[in-house]
Simulated assay, not measured.
Amino acid sequence: MVWFRAPLLIALGLFVAGIALTAALKDRHYVLLSLVLLLAALLPLFLRLERRQLESRELVLLAVLSAIAAVSRIPFAALPGVKPVSAVVILSAYVFGAEAGFVIGAVAALVSNIYFGQGPWTPWQMFAWGMTGLTAGWLRNTRWMRSRTGLLIFGFIWGFLFGWIMNVWVIISLPDAFSWGLVAATYGAGFYFDLAHALSNVFFLAILAGGWTKVLERFRKKYGLLQE
């Protein structure tokens, strides 16, 4: 079953260990750690090579989708919380599956931060966007995700989940001693940014979910790309 794919679960476990290590290192070696996590994100593809030959055009497709997701952040840099990346990752996973979504989300975070700046937050963004793609791929064949309304609700929810994951890093990085008041203040301060992200997910998914998804599905069926 899709829910218990060993490669994806191994990669997910490495990510959890990696972001825990980020919390310990804080501002040291985060670039190296990000590269290690990138390899973890690619692990499902490496293991897929054992089952069947991964074609070069499939790797090119993943690279192109990752680049599109990464570059989509730049035009909206002046609008905090507005991140088209999530919509691109969700739709890519919707068409090509959990493995592709996980890889595209993680790679997009690392590549886009070449422009926005690398930091100890990078592994957490890689994890958050990777999980966005992973869960979208896992749920893509459900009745809920097959409906337009369900897809938009999924994007709205992940707008908040992404921010909540990043808030964990914010809390850990603060010099103040942990307290529930600090947690409430952090999540309260980030609410409007998370809301902006959630609403922008709905907006971009509503625009792209029709024509763009059909184009990707046509490529997948015609050329047999990333068949699960």
Rank of each mutant, 00 (worst) to 15 (best):
L32P: 00
Y94F: 15
N167H: 08
L110R: 07
S86A: 15
I207V: 15
T135P: 02
I207K: 04
L199M: 12
I90P: 07
A198V: 06
M145Y: 13
R146T: 02
L62I: 15
V64G: 00
S66D: 05
L38W: 14
L59V: 13
F102T: 00
M126F: 11
H197G: 01
G137L: 10
L39M: 14
W138T: 00
F76L: 14
P123T: 01
L9F: 15
R57I: 11
I10V: 15
F116Q: 08
A23H: 06
L38N: 01
F156S: 01
L65N: 09
L110M: 10
L14D: 02
I19H: 10
Q227C: 04
G150D: 04
F15C: 07
W3H: 11
L54G: 00
S179M: 11
Y94M: 13
P123L: 11
R57D: 11
E99I: 10
L38T: 06
G97K: 10
F178D: 00
Y94K: 12
G18M: 12
R52E: 12
L21S: 05
A77V: 12
A106W: 12
F15L: 11
P84S: 03
A11K: 11
E50G: 03
I165P: 01
F160D: 01
L33T: 01
Y115V: 14
G101K: 12
L59Y: 08
W164C: 01
L182Y: 11
R73Q: 09
R148D: 06
V36E: 04
T132P: 05
M131V: 14
E55L: 15
A100C: 08
A198N: 06
G119E: 04
L45N: 03
